[in-house]
């Protein structure tokens, strides 16, 4: 069996297409296990995993925890609000103290871009990036691409538009890397003020008109407006954003093709997505959540195996 070319999952940027393919094939096996009456396997019972979440999270944290529990790993959880981080301890000190307790894998969410790369260079444990600031969120991109693969049979040749706040989105950057590595065509759509300057270097075109974007694509991945990351006013009001870039059933009904709607969550219902679209047959949002557990099981399993080799 092939093994991952990387020792950590720091970002999609560092993965080869063969790594992504291996993760998907392993996730296929785990998805079958998740449909068994008893969904737990003893694969990682020798492994200890620390989930360090220095930023709020609901589904990523739960999804990682469930994946770890279903692999029978020993887990410990730490969040910044209830730890010595509040007392001024550095990230490296916190992690080294945790590693002294013999932890094999660290799942890290941190507000600073590059936090997981920094950690991987300074500590002796496998690092899984569960989101680092506005940089990358690799497991989200993997589960998004996996959900597209599941829906269409493959990702190659699909047209995906990512709509919304690209500038502050780690999901967008990881998705662009992942989908392009798998042969999809990726474009973005949203107000120019929410587009990063380096868009051209990523080989991604920008739609400023939502209707044109939706008419072009097979899949629309809609992002949340990240109010917590916006110190400046990037658009006049949420209402105006919603009127220009919010997707509702009326807009979808006008399209000549049926498109698939994705959203990494949490949804601001009525802002970027209306409820009649979020809960419609176009939406694969809950499939994304379900696939998240299988993808995270695959990533943890493959990284743990890499350790023993």
């Amino acid at each position: 069996m092939s093994i991952l070319s990387v020792n950590h999952l720091l970002g999609i940027k560092y993965l080869k297409p063969s790594d992504i393919d291996l993760i998907f094939k392993t996730a296929d096996n785990f998805k079958k296990i998740l449909n068994q009456p008893i969904k737990k396997v003893p694969s990682l019972r020798d492994i200890s995993i620390a989930n360090l979440f220095f930023e709020d999270s609901t589904r990523t944290k739960l999804s990682f925890e469930l994946a770890e529990k279903r692999l029978s790993a020993e887990i410990i959880n730490l969040s910044s609000t209830s730890s010595s981080v509040k007392k001024g301890e550095t990230l490296l000190d916190t992690v080294n103290n945790i590693l002294a307790m013999k932890v094999d894998i660290i799942v890290l969410r941190h507000p600073n871009p590059g936090a997981s790369v920094f950690l991987s260079r300074n500590v002796d444990a496998k690092i899984v990036n569960a989101g680092d600031g506005t940089h990358e969120h690799p497991t989200q991109a993997l589960l998004d691409a996996y959900s597209i693969r599941e829906k269409f049979g493959n990702v190659n040749g699909r047209k995906v538009v990512i709509i919304g706040d690209i500038l502050h989105s780690r999901v967008a950057l990881s998705n662009i890397y992942c989908l392009q590595k798998l042969g999809a065509e990726v474009r973005v759509c949203g107000p120019s003020s929410l587009m990063p300057k380096h868009l051209n270097s990523l080989n991604v075109e920008h739609f400023s008109n939502l209707d044109e974007a939706l008419e072009w694509c097979d899949i629309a991945n809609i992002l949340r407006i990240q109010l917590e990351r916006q110190n400046l006013n990037y658009f006049p009001s949420l209402r105006e954003y919603s009127m220009r870039y919010g997707i509702n059933k009326k807009i979808l009904d006008k399209l000549t093709n049926d498109i698939v709607i994705m959203h990494p969550g949490p949804i601001n219902r009525g802002v970027e997505l209306s409820s009649d679209v979020a809960d419609s047959k176009h939406s694969i949002i809950l499939n994304q959540v379900e696939n998240g557990v299988a993808i995270r099981m695959a990533v943890l399993y493959l990284l743990a195996l890499k350790k023993s080799n």
């Binding site: 069996m1 096996n29 785990f30 296990i33 003893p42 694969s43 492994i47 195996l305 023993s308």
Partner: peptide, 21 residues
Amino acid sequence: DISFYRDDLMRRDHPIEPDIM
């Protein structure tokens, strides 16, 4: 397929290729 149920997963020289369940 018993790949994920083995007790020697972390002790093997080469990873096992999971098969179809």
